[in-house]
Computed example of a mutant assay.
Amino acid sequence: MRYPITPVPKPRQTQADRWKKRPPVLRYRAFADECRARKVMVPECGAHITFVMPMPAIWSGKKRDAMDGQPHQAKPDSDNLVKALLDAVLPEDCAVWDYRVTKLWGESGAIIIQNMEAKAA
Score class of each variant (00 low, 15 high):
residue 24 P to L: 05
residue 50 T to C: 14
residue 21 K to V: 07
residue 34 E to K: 10
residue 106 G to D: 05
residue 98 D to G: 14
residue 13 Q to D: 06
residue 106 G to R: 05
residue 10 K to T: 03
residue 72 H to T: 02
residue 51 F to M: 03
residue 15 Q to I: 15
residue 73 Q to H: 09
residue 41 M to A: 10
residue 61 G to Y: 02
residue 52 V to M: 02
residue 111 I to N: 01
residue 51 F to R: 03
residue 101 V to Y: 09
residue 13 Q to P: 01
residue 4 P to F: 00
residue 92 E to T: 03
residue 16 A to R: 15
residue 60 S to L: 06
residue 94 C to I: 09
residue 35 C to S: 04
residue 30 A to T: 11
residue 9 P to L: 05
residue 62 K to V: 11
residue 84 A to F: 05
residue 115 N to A: 08
residue 11 P to G: 03
residue 49 I to C: 08
residue 25 V to H: 05
residue 35 C to A: 06
residue 121 A to Q: 13
residue 67 M to H: 03
residue 75 K to F: 09
residue 56 P to Y: 08
residue 29 R to N: 11
residue 110 A to W: 05
residue 86 L to D: 00
residue 16 A to G: 12
residue 69 G to E: 09
residue 84 A to G: 07
residue 24 P to Q: 07
residue 52 V to L: 05
residue 36 R to N: 09
residue 118 A to C: 02
residue 69 G to S: 11
residue 70 Q to E: 14
residue 88 A to D: 05
residue 108 S to N: 14
residue 64 R to T: 12
residue 78 S to T: 09
residue 27 R to Q: 14
residue 65 D to N: 11
residue 56 P to L: 08
residue 47 A to T: 06
residue 14 T to P: 02
residue 24 P to S: 07
residue 78 S to D: 15
residue 56 P to V: 07
residue 75 K to P: 06
residue 4 P to R: 04
residue 34 E to F: 02
residue 39 K to L: 04
residue 102 T to H: 06
residue 23 P to V: 04
residue 29 R to I: 03
residue 87 D to G: 01
residue 49 I to N: 06
residue 120 A to L: 14
residue 116 M to W: 04
residue 37 A to H: 10
residue 47 A to G: 07
residue 19 W to P: 01
residue 18 R to W: 09
residue 74 A to N: 12
residue 62 K to A: 13
residue 36 R to E: 03
residue 109 G to K: 00
residue 71 P to Y: 10
residue 61 G to A: 12
residue 68 D to P: 01
